Amino acid sequence: MLSLHGKIVAITGASGGIGEATARLLAQRGAAVVLAARRSERIDAIAQDIREEGGSAATCVVDVTKAEDLQRLVSTTLDQYGRIDVLVNNAGIAPISPLADLDTESWSAMIDVNLRGMLNGVAAALPAFREQGSGHLVSIVSVAGLSGVSPSMAVYAATKNAVRTVHEGLRRESTDGVVRTTAISPGYVRTDLADSMTDPQIREQTYKNMDAMGIPPAAVARAVAFAIEQPGDVEIGEINVRPTVQA
Rank of each mutant, 00 (worst) to 15 (best):
I215N: 14
L78R: 14
G82L: 06
I93N: 04
A94K: 07
A123M: 07
R242M: 14
V245C: 12
R242A: 13
T165C: 15
D103L: 12
A157R: 09
G187E: 03
R130L: 10
L99E: 04
I239L: 08
T165K: 11
A23M: 10
L102V: 10
L35G: 11
R190W: 03
A31W: 10
P186M: 08
A162C: 10
S147N: 12
G148S: 07
R190T: 12
V155F: 07
L2V: 10
S15F: 02
A183F: 15
A162Y: 06
A21K: 01
D211A: 12
S56I: 15
S40F: 05
A47E: 08
L4A: 09
N120A: 08
I46M: 00
V64A: 00
S3Y: 05
V189A: 01
G17T: 05
P127L: 02
I50Y: 01
L119G: 01
L102E: 13
E105Q: 10
V234H: 00
S139G: 07
D79H: 13
K7F: 05
V155R: 04
P95H: 09
Y188S: 12
P95Q: 04
V189W: 00
S196A: 14
Q201G: 14
P200R: 11
D195G: 00
S185C: 12
E105C: 02
A109W: 01
S174H: 03
P200V: 06
L137H: 02
K7R: 11
A31E: 10
L99K: 03
V86L: 06
I96Q: 15
T77V: 05
S15V: 06
V9F: 01
M197V: 15
I43W: 15
I46W: 00
Y81T: 06
K66I: 11
A162M: 07
T181W: 02
D79T: 05
T12F: 09
A221F: 09
G54S: 03
A36M: 03
T206Q: 13
T175Y: 01
L78D: 02
A31R: 07
R38E: 07
G177L: 11
G117K: 14
G13Y: 12
T198A: 13
S3L: 07
K7I: 03
V9M: 00
V224F: 07
I111M: 11
V143H: 00
G169F: 03
R203G: 03
D211S: 14
S97L: 04
G135T: 06
A14D: 01
D44W: 03
V64G: 04
S139D: 05
V62S: 15
R24Y: 02
R222A: 12
R130W: 05
